[in-house]
Nucleic acid binder design. Structure first.
Length: 742
DNA sequence: AGGTGGTTGATTTTT
DNA sequence: TCAACCACCT
């Protein structure tokens, strides 16, 4: 499934294993130390390409082979399903094909869900609770915001749900949200909304991702549940954690509670690769590991088996600009290799052309397209490369984007299954109650919902109530009764019928399948195909609930397929992967490092951006190309920028620079042959001055004042529209009539 | 119920 | 620029 990528991993070579165990022989000294230091707390600081996964899997195998623990006594936690699968495969291969089913090896969320299903009653849930996706979360919160009279235009449900998510990431339940955490967002009603949200979730027997961790913490730290904690302490003799730098506070608390028994916990990670702070990851977890786990031992893996020394030195020089790090220095015995090529280009189009040319040259020298990746900071940047690659006839694939389980028809089908599996799943029921059309409009739904909320019961039960009364029109009433009847019948079939067959039956009997079969829009055929694929895929699971759990927790196998193509993706998406040739594009101040990160998080934001640059460089085995453009179209308007500070942080002696004539060069003395460039004739059409109705003449670079946004600087002029970077609210496009010269 | 025009606002993303 | 969303219309 991930045959196109060489997953992060390189094999150690120079082992001197004292033990007879053959799997230890290929490890180098620190790797061996990391595998054999089994007792107590251990932090393995594993730099990029130093054999992290190998250490983790070998350690797991070693614990079992040496008789220290049975597989069922080891808790091994990863961040993504891909990493968990990778570990399972390797372990299985290493141990002669043992079956790993039933082991406690999985993602934080899947393991916590497994625990929570056994103990759901302790937090007022039943064990068949639904796991909501972000879309459901937003819809639920939106309903509550409307009930509380919060303006959902001014404060979007999406941004409000992320506040709740961050609270959950920090392990905060509604009652522990403190005053400092309250802002004027949602009229200061966020704590109220949070607690209503949790109440409603309980009423519909549902959890969001954050709850999986949060509820388990609540259970484990409650003295009344000491027996539960004791049981886990007895069970788990050893704990292994991957990507520790990405854990949030809740995950840390969960780990610490579970490790409280034996104290044998081994975390592997790299503080320099912490790039998920914006979604709650707490780099402090790895930085203060020694304080958190008394007597902890830190082992550094610094020999890199992936990249050339030039690449390692460049990334090392860059990351040294960060303040708080544990610190390590990567080295390799593979020689210096090529210098980094830096290209300064006029605009995004020229940048895409340059990258295209370099790719073709590499190709002529015998490099396969799949050895190359073009990495961008933000999704929209891929477009210009795609256009260029299409022109050149270069095969490429964009990784990331819409996934199978996010397609509309798949979600609808899953919503039917969810209601069958768990009748209280309001959000699923709401989704399909009138799909296909059954003549149930907004008015009816609102009546049902207000009844449900008033009585604190799920929608499903509200429908049962109201179909016993005369509040609804007879037509509506009979439609609803028929629907409940259908769901009841499907539910009763669940135990006796094959779940895939049942799935097909539901889609037929509900009329959902025929809705698409009769649809004559161009995409309808594809949707029918997708639905059939969904039914087919269900066969791989043992039951309907197991299938739904998989869908809720497991991401799509992205980027599959074979063939030779250039990979295009974001820097975040590239973490954990490696390529011979890596193109790092759009290295401009404001874009990378992103202005928004710096505005919102200051130095912390900048340092995370720098770690992102570090991750980017260290993806490369042989060659790194970095490019920046002096102007580029962003959201329709031209933006000029200077080269990223990160470009300057690459030492001159490791890089060669060429920039298109007339451009300000980033570094001073680096030059490589300039024959590769054709000077660009056309310069982007950018206005420089405008006269406002009030008679002011505004020019690019002027400092201005805007009634709503305050002070800012004009970066571009397009007729009477100005692009301005405001000191407090970032870049905005405004009309000149609202602006005065300051 | 379905279509339309006007406004808005826009990273990074896994589970 | 462009897509998503909503209010309003047919």
């Amino acid at each position: 499934m991930h045959d196109i990528f060489e997953i992060e991993e390189t094999v150690g070579k120079t082992g001197k294993a004292e033990s007879e165990a053959p799997y230890l022989e290929t490890l180098n000294t620190p790797q061996l130390d990391a595998v054999e230091t089994v007792d107590g707390a251990v932090l393995v600081l594993a730099g990029a390409g130093t054999g992290k996964t190998r250490v983790l899997t070998t350690r797991l195998a070693h614990l079992i082979n040496s008789g220290r623990a049975y597989p069922s006594q080891i808790l091994a936690v990863t961040f993504t399903n891909k990493a968990a699968l990778e570990m399972k495969e390797r372990i299985s291969a290493m141990m002669g094909g043992v079956a790993v089913e039933g082991w406690w090896l999985g993602t934080f969320h899947s393991l916590a869900a497994r625990m929570l299903r056994r103990n759901a009653d302790l937090v007022g849930l039943s064990s068949n609770f639904t796991i909501l996706n972000p879309d459901d979360q937003i819809r639920l919160l939106k309903q509550l915001m409307e009930v509380e009279g919060v303006d959902t235009k001014k404060w979007t449900p999406k941004s409000c749900i992320s506040i709740i998510d961050r609270w959950k990431d920090r392990g905060l339940v509604p009652s522990s949200v403190s005053n400092e955490d309250v802002s004027d967002i949602a009229d200061g009603k966020m704590p109220l909304l949070y607690s209503k949200y949790q109440m409603r979730m309980r009423a519909i027997n549902a959890c969001d991702f954050g709850d999986l961790m949060l509820h388990m913490i609540t259970i484990l730290k409650n003295p009344a549940n000491k027996a539960v904690l004791d049981e886990y302490h007895q069970r788990f003799k050893y704990i292994l954690v991957d990507e520790y730098q990405d854990t949030n506070v809740a995950q840390y608390l969960w780990l610490r509670l579970l490790a409280g028994g034996t104290g044998n916990i081994c975390c592997v990670g790299d503080d320099d690769q912490s790039i998920y702070g914006w979604r709650g990851a707490e780099i402090g977890n790895i930085l203060k590991f020694e304080q958190d786990f008394k007597g902890a031992k830190i082992i550094r893996l610094e020999q890199n088996y992936r990249s050339t020394n030039n690449i390692l030195k460049a990334s090392g020089a860059l990351i040294e600009n960060n303040g708080s790090r544990l610190g390590k220095t990567l080295w390799s015995d593979q020689g210096d290799g090529d210098k980094i090529k830096i290209g300064g280009l006029w605009d995004g189009e020229a940048e895409a052309r340059w990258v295209g040319e370099e790719i073709e040259q590499l190709q002529h020298k015998g490099n396969a397209l799949k050895s190359m990746a073009v990495l961008v900071r933000t999704g929209f940047q891929t477009r210009e490369f795609e256009e260029r690659f299409v022109k050149l006839g270069l095969a490429y694939k964009v990784i990331g984007g819409a996934r199978f389980y996010e397609r509309m028809e798949i979600r609808d089908a899953l919503a039917y299954f969810r209601v069958v599996a768990q009748r209280a799943d309001d959000l699923a029921l709401e989704r399909v109650i009138n799909t296909p059309k059954r003549g149930l409009g907004d008015a009816t739904i609102n009546t049902l919902y207000s009844h449900a909320r008033r009585h604190g019961i799920p929608l499903h039960d509200a429908i049962m109530d109201l179909t016993q009364s005369d509040e609804l029109r007879p037509k509506v009433k009979s439609t609803l009764m028929k629907l409940l009847d259908d769901f009841g019948r499907w539910r009763s079939l669940m135990d006796n019928m094959n779940h895939a067959e049942l799935g097909a039956l539901i889609l037929e009997e509900s009329g959902y399948m025929s809705m698409w079969k009769l649809d004559k829009t161009p995409e309808a055929a594809g949707r029918v195909e997708n639905l059939n694929e969904l039914i087919g895929g269900m066969q791989d699971y043992d039951s309907m609930p197991e299938f739904l759990e998989h869908v809720a927790l497991v991401l799509e196998n992205q980027g599959g397929g074979s063939g030779d193509f250039v990979t295009l993706m974001t820097l975040h998406g590239a973490k954990g992967l490696e390529f011979d040739n890596v193109f790092l594009t759009g290295w401009e101040e404001g874009l990378f490092p992103s202005q928004r990160s710096m505005d919102e998080k200051g130095t912390k934001g900048l340092e995370e951006e720098r770690r992102l640059a570090y991750v980017g460089i260290t993806r490369a085995r042989k060659r790194v190309f970095i490019s920046y453009a002096s102007s580029r179209r962003i959201y329709g308007s031209w933006v000029s920028s200077i080269p990223s500070r990160f470009v300057d942080e690459i030492p001159d002696d490791l890089a060669l620079l060429n920039s298109q004539s007339g451009m300000a060069a980033a570094g001073r003395s680096r030059h490589w042959d300039s024959s590769g460039f054709t000077p660009k004739v056309k310069t982007p059409s950018i206005g420089v001055k405008v006269k406002t109705d009030s008679g002011d003449v505004l020019a690019r670079g002027d400092r201005i004042f805007h009634d709503k946004f305050g002070y800012g600087k004009i970066i571009n002029i397009d007729g009477h529209k100005l692009d301005i970077i405001f000191e407090h609210s970032g870049k905005k496009r405004v009309m000149d009539s609202f602006v005065t010269k300051s």
